[in-house]
């Protein structure tokens, strides 16, 4: 990714919900220190598209701050991975927040964005 996001702090996370299902998102905005990372999906091949927006970027649509966003806010992006699947499409983006290990997965499927947190295995159970 050409956009420089390493070492930047996440100030806010906002989403546009998918039309019929609020578990998936149509668009995701990561508000960083001096820019906004705008994540959408290419609807012809389900690849993730990243755009850099001005930090004052505003949309006419109402953006929602999802409940889980508090887990990311104030975190620093240490590393990221752009992943290619078996068919050669970039449909997975992984962020390492506050550590260089993957912590958040952003995945695109059926023109929608799905986000999952990666939790460590508790080996002391």
């Amino acid at each position: 990714m050409e956009i420089d996001i390493i070492g930047k702090r996440i100030k806010s996370v906002k989403v546009i919900n998918s039309q019929e299902n609020c578990k998936y998102y149509e668009r995701l905005f990561l508000y960083l220190d001096d820019l906004v990372l705008d994540v959408t999906v290419d609807n012809s091949n389900d690849e993730l598209i990243f755009k850099k927006q001005n930090s004052k970027y505003q949309l006419e649509e109402d953006l929602i701050e999802p409940e889980w966003s508090n887990k990311l806010i104030e975190g620093t992006i240490n590393s990221f991975w752009e992943c290619q699947n078996n068919m050669g499409y970039n449909d997975l983006f992984i962020l390492g927040i506050n550590e260089s290990f993957p912590t958040v997965c952003i995945y695109s499927i059926a023109s929608q964005i799905e986000i999952r947190m990666i939790n460590p295995i508790n080996i002391n159970f």
Binding site: S18, Q19, E20, N21, K23, Y24, S44, N45, D46, N85, M87, G88, Y89, D91, I109, A110, S111, Q112
Partner: peptide, 19 residues
């Protein structure tokens, strides 16, 4: 569109049918 997981996989396979 309603979030049916298997259908979403189907659409993904369709969109990414060829390498």
């Amino acid at each position: 569109a309603k979030g049916e997981k298997e259908a979403m996989t189907g659409i993904k396979i369709l969109k990414q049918a060829s390498k």
